[in-house]
């Protein structure tokens, strides 16, 4: 992770001139040499590769706010949506690896994306370095409150099922697809454009079931408009303690969405260290904790190596299960 020498020399020269360095600080400069004790000397851009208003955007804003104090600089959030997060991450990789731009990333892009399309240009996790892990958001299989299906067994005994998904290559599609595929139920997926339209379709009873995140469903479950049948996490959700896991009722399916923050892989160690410490402290904040609770999210707080391992294992597990079930993502027609 060494930078080529000439660039180092140039930047050191720049940093030696205080006025120039100060000027540079409010524009585009910055670099490896400002690292360590002197990092950060200016705001750190926090990119969210998703639209404003979605879960990923909300978490980022909550954690960015909490990280301002420990980091000692502001972290303005910028949305860079496109291609399930790939557009923002590619732009991150094309920029400087100086720690002044950090980006949210999600598990589905790395663990499910490669199973949908074989894209040689796809962003891979080894191009990135995880500075902190944030959340684990479970999926819950729901039916309409008036649905005749009371339990998962009822649903799996149905002749045919239409299930909505939040899009191709999402955990929503994978979890429900594996469930019906492995159980041998004649089920057809109906992909919608995100969580909102899928919720609408389920409430309007256009579809029989859907696997959605807790944040998308809890208000409707509490209002009695949706009935949860199972969750796809390893253990029961703290927010839905009376709903069994798929595992408990005999279906070995573990799908969740996890979020973390990354920088390019060649970012200097000391810079990564500063960021990691700041976010560790940010995660302790009471407001951030309240935010997670309000949005039915669970904490996922492991170190970068464990996180990378988890992503790699999840990809292998999903691939094996897809092969076993005969389900294909993205070629459902």
């Amino acid at each position: 992770m060494q930078h080529p020498l000439p660039r180092r020399g140039l930047l050191a020269g720049l940093a030696a001139v205080p006025s120039l360095a100060a000027l540079a600080a409010c524009q585009v400069q910055g670099g490896a040499d400002e690292a360590g004790a002197s990092f950060p000397t200016r705001a750190v851009d926090f990119w969210v590769p998703f639209d404003a208003g979605g879960s990923g955007d909300l978490i980022s804003r909550a954690v960015a706010k909490a990280a301002e104090k420990p980091l000692g600089e502001s972290l303005p959030v910028t949305n860079k949506p496109g291609a399930n997060g790939a557009v923002g991450l590619k732009e991150l990789l094309a920029g400087k690896a100086d720690g002044y731009t950090i980006c949210l990333a999600v598990k589905s892009l790395f663990a499910i994306g490669p199973l949908v399309v074989d894209d040689p240009d796809a962003v891979t996790i080894d191009q990135l370095r995880i500075i902190t892990t944030l959340t684990n958001e479970g999926y819950v299989l729901v039916v309409h409150g008036d649905s005749p299906y009371q339990t998962l067994d009822d649903l799996l005994a149905a002749d045919s099922v239409n299930y909505g998904t939040t899009g191709v290559g999402t955990g929503s599609q994978l979890s429900a697809g594996l469930l019906f595929g492995l159980a041998g139920v004649a089920a057809k997926d109906v992909p919608f454009d995100g969580g909102g339209p899928t919720v609408t379709a389920l409430l309007g009873q256009d579809i029989d079931a859907a696997s959605l995140s807790l944040a998308e469903t809890m208000p409707h479950i509490e209002a009695g408009d949706m009935r949860p049948l199972c969750v796809f996490s390893e253990e029961r959700s703290v927010y839905l303690n009376d709903v069994p896991t798929a595992l408990e009722v005999g279906h070995n399916i573990l799908v969740d969405q996890r979020r973390f923050i990354v920088v390019p892989a060649d970012t200097p160690d000391d810079v990564v260290g500063v960021l990691t410490l700041a976010f560790e402290e940010a995660r302790e904040g009471g407001e951030y904790g309240q935010f997670l609770q309000d949005n039915f999210m669970e904490r996922w707080e492991v170190d970068g190596m464990d996180a990378e391992l988890h992503l790699a294992e999840a990809t292998e597990q999903f691939k094996a299960q897809l092969d076993e079930s005969g389900v294909t993502l993205g070629t459902g027609e």
Binding site: A52, G53, G54, L58, R61, G196, P219
Partner: peptide, 22 residues
């Protein structure tokens, strides 16, 4: 219903969530 009808409503949805209101 908690369903955003357009992109602007989605951001307003987010604004409410950040305020702790669902």
């Amino acid at each position: 219903l908690g369903i955003p009808a357009n992109a602007t409503m989605a951001v307003l949805f987010g604004a409410l969530m950040l305020q702790g209101i669902t």
